[in-house]
Simulated assay, not measured.
Amino acid sequence: MSAGEAIDREQFATTALTTRIAFVLELARRLHQYGTSAPRLEMAIAGAAQRLGMSADVWSSPTAIIISFADLAQGEEGVAQTTQVMRLAPGEVNLERLCQADDIADRAIAGELGLREGFRRLRELGRPDTRREKIGSIASYGLSAASIAA
């Protein structure tokens, strides 16, 4: 472990384990929802957990994610303290929201954004499109169809 990783772990050691786990779970949910491949999701979540002072064993499928967490500050790296199972609908690719989720995760892990704030922003990404956004999407499809028809 490098000196930078030790400093990062110390930074998050004072953050409650439940807060760190909630952030990682929400990140996993959003990455899955927006179309990240299973190997990428597993590596990203394990890496994010490591940076937050935890170890995570991750398994993902198109409809579920299982993550076992252990707090590295407790010493026993191999013993899972909690395991979470999430059943999810198969995601669809949304590159814009996937990039936004990656940015939020990077900023939270770098310390530019608090974990609670990062969690809140990840949750906001999951909100349904507003009526205005839906109307704009329908209008763009109509405009595209009209231009092709001409």
Rank of each mutant, 00 (worst) to 15 (best):
D102C: 12
R29H: 11
V58Y: 06
T14E: 12
A80F: 14
L27N: 00
T19H: 09
L27A: 02
A28R: 00
G136Q: 15
R30H: 03
T82A: 12
A110Y: 05
M1L: 06
K134Q: 15
G4T: 05
R51W: 01
T18L: 07
G4R: 04
I104L: 12
A101C: 04
V24K: 03
G118Y: 05
E26I: 02
R107Y: 00
S61D: 12
E124I: 02
A139T: 06
R116Y: 11
E10P: 00
D106K: 11
A146S: 11
T83K: 10
A49T: 00
R30V: 04
E10M: 13
K134V: 14
R51Q: 13
L41T: 03
R131C: 04
E26F: 01
Q100P: 00
F23K: 02
L98P: 01
R121K: 14
E92F: 13
D129Y: 15
S147P: 00
A6D: 11
E76H: 14
L72P: 01
A46M: 01
A56N: 05
G4W: 07
V79C: 10
Q74V: 03
K134A: 11
A3M: 08
L122W: 08
K134T: 14
Q81A: 08
T83C: 04
R127N: 10
A22Q: 05
S61N: 07
A22F: 09
R120Y: 13
G75H: 06
R120Q: 13
L113C: 05
L95R: 12
A64L: 04
G136I: 07
F23A: 05
L113G: 08
A150Q: 13
R40Q: 08
N94F: 08
L72T: 11
A101Q: 01
L17A: 14
I67G: 01
G91W: 01
D71E: 01
A149S: 08
T82N: 07
E133I: 15
W59L: 11
R87W: 06
M54C: 05
G47Y: 00
L143P: 09
T14Q: 09
A64D: 09
S37Q: 13
R51G: 00
R132F: 15
G126M: 06
D129W: 15
R120S: 12
A145H: 03
A70M: 00
D106T: 07
T18R: 13
Q81H: 11
V58N: 05
E10A: 14
Q33T: 13
A80S: 15
R121A: 07
R20N: 03
S147K: 12
F23D: 04
I138C: 08
A73R: 10
G35C: 03
L52S: 00
T14I: 03
A149K: 11
R20V: 01
L143F: 10
I65S: 10
L25I: 09
D129V: 15
T63Q: 12
A110E: 10
L125E: 02
L52T: 00
G111S: 08
A149G: 05
L95I: 07
E124H: 07
T18I: 09
I7S: 12
L88F: 03
I135H: 11
W59P: 00
P128F: 07
E96A: 15
A22K: 04
G4Q: 11
A46D: 03
R51K: 14
G114R: 10
T14D: 12
A110I: 02
L125M: 04
